[in-house]
Write a protein that binds this DNA or RNA. Structure first.
Ligand SMILES: [Mg+2]
Length: 313
DNA sequence: GCGACAG
DNA sequence: ATCTTGTCGC
């Protein structure tokens, strides 16, 4: 069963007359921090009994939830469900998939290496994925070490089965990225991924996942932060500051191109943070490193072509 | 009430 | 990530 199905299964366990919070359901999934994701997924994919899932504040979260709850004997006022604690249901049973995945991330994170296995990559492969419903369009673009010359481009289309949950991006996007990687010959000597590397709650974001699983040096480049606190904002283009998690510096915030918006670079695998920063800056003709930007455009374009062709039928 | 989580 | 058109500016 896929994750959305597992969520629906958990929600179906809540007895009539009882309620659970989004964090309760997320806990049943194996990670209480996925509460927001559970809300989003239930909103998109209505499951039986979702009216019984409420906010921690006791307020109902879905359009006709209040009347459905009253119908089964649960009083709801403008302050939400009455006696939330008394009616709260938390005895969920299930495979707790997110717990298993988080444990996998923690285990694999031990094999991340931040020593430089490459200093001057000659074939840099970047990947990105676009979506149309449950279909993924992944693209891989190989450039030379400067990002100025495109050496190879590949695209694939594949169904996606895993929803986007912050902290678990790799389980959604990596299968499509791997399919692209397998079509690259010769293999690239560096991977650049649109997402974080070790700048991640388990120190194993998608860039690390790809680097370790494919046994290639890799760099994570994200457009926004998942965890961590940046130092003083760099005042000039080309400047950067460290991003700390606790007392460790796990990434860097770069002011690239001519944009004031920062990008966030971290070690994926087989490369040091310094080298990752140096290479990333070199590839930034604009805010987004050229290989990633091209992979983004290519995947979006493939999706567009597919949509257009589909309308003809 | 505020803060808050890649794509 | 996606939903979406034209428009302003280099
Ligand atoms: Mg992306």
């Amino acid at each position: 069963m896929d994750l959305a199905g597992e969520i629906a299964d958990l929600v179906a366990q809540i007895p009539a007359g009882r309620v659970a919070t989004f964090a309760d359901v997320a806990e049943g999934l194996g990670d209480p921090r996925a509460a927001m994701a559970v809300f989003r997924i239930l909103r998109e994919t209505p499951a039986k009994g979702i009216h019984r899932v409420v906010r921690a504040s006791a307020h109902v979260a879905f359009p006709r939830a209040a009347s459905l709850l009253r119908r089964e004997g649960v009083p709801v006022s403008d302050r939400g469900v009455e006696d939330l604690e008394g009616r709260r249901w938390r005895e969920f049973s299930g495979p707790r998939t997110l717990k298993r995945l988080r444990e996998e991330q923690i285990r694999l994170a031990a094999s991340v290496d931040d020593a430089d296995r490459v200093l001057e990559p000659q074939r840099i492969a970047a990947f990105d994925v676009s979506y149309a419903g449950d279909r993924a369009f992944a693209a891989g673009v190989v450039t030379d070490g400067t990002g100025g010359r495109v050496l190879h481009e590949v695209t694939i289309r594949t169904p996606v089965d895993f929803p986007y949950i912050p902290g678990y991006l790799a389980y959604r996007e990596f299968p499509a990225i791997e399919a692209c990687f397998r079509r690259l010959d010769p293999p690239p000597d560096l991977l650049m991924i649109d997402g974080h590397g070790i700048l991640h709650p388990a120190r194993f974001g998608i860039a690390s996942y790809a680097g370790v699983m494919l046994d290639r040096p890799s760099i994570g480049v994200a457009k926004s932060l998942l965890v961590g606190t940046p130092g003083p904002t760099p005042a000039e283009a080309g400047g950067w500051t460290g991003v700390r998690v606790g007392r460790e510096t796990l990434g860097a915030a770069l002011r690239s191109g001519r944009s004031r918006r920062l990008i966030y670079v971290s070690v994926g695998h087989g490369v040091s943070l310094r080298t990752a920063i140096r290479i990333t800056i070199r590839l930034c003709k604009s805010r987004i490193p050229e290989p990633i930007r091209r992979a983004d455009l290519l995947s979006k374009n493939e999706k567009r072509k597919w949509k257009k062709k589909r309308i003809e039928f």
